[in-house]
């Protein structure tokens, strides 16, 4: 397996959507290729960091205000 072939299946490996046989080939490539090992580990970490950190938080005050505005108009439309 070449690095290019590995990269084409990187997402499937990260997402756990590869068949057992393909996974074994990918893991075999990983054990021999330091470059792809770094790409695999740091790409997985990238996703994990974005998943676990709230970068656009909705502050409680704003949340309440938006919520009240939405519900007020929904109720008006309802009546």
């Amino acid at each position: 397996m070449t690095c290019k072939e590995f990269l084409a299946l990187l997402d499937d490996l990260i997402d756990g959507t590869v068949a057992a046989e393909t996974r074994a080939e990918l893991e075999s490539h990983l054990s021999r290729c330091g470059h792809c090992e770094v790409i695999f580990n740091t790409t997985r970490k990238t996703i994990e960091i974005y998943r676990s950190h709230e970068i656009y938080d909705l502050p409680a005050g704003l949340r309440d205000r938006l919520h009240a505005a939405i519900m007020a108009r929904c109720k008006r439309n309802c009546s």
Binding site: L7, H35, V38, T42
Partner: peptide
């Protein structure tokens, strides 16, 4: 399509620990 990144630097273990919450959020944004 399909270019393979080169000259890769590995990351520090738990690299986000080197930044404060606000600084990290700004980097991610």
């Amino acid at each position: 399509e399909g270019s393979v990144p080169r000259d890769l630097a590995d990351w520090a273990p738990d690299p986000e620990q080197n930044y404060g919450q606000a600084e990290l959020a700004e980097i991610l944004r």
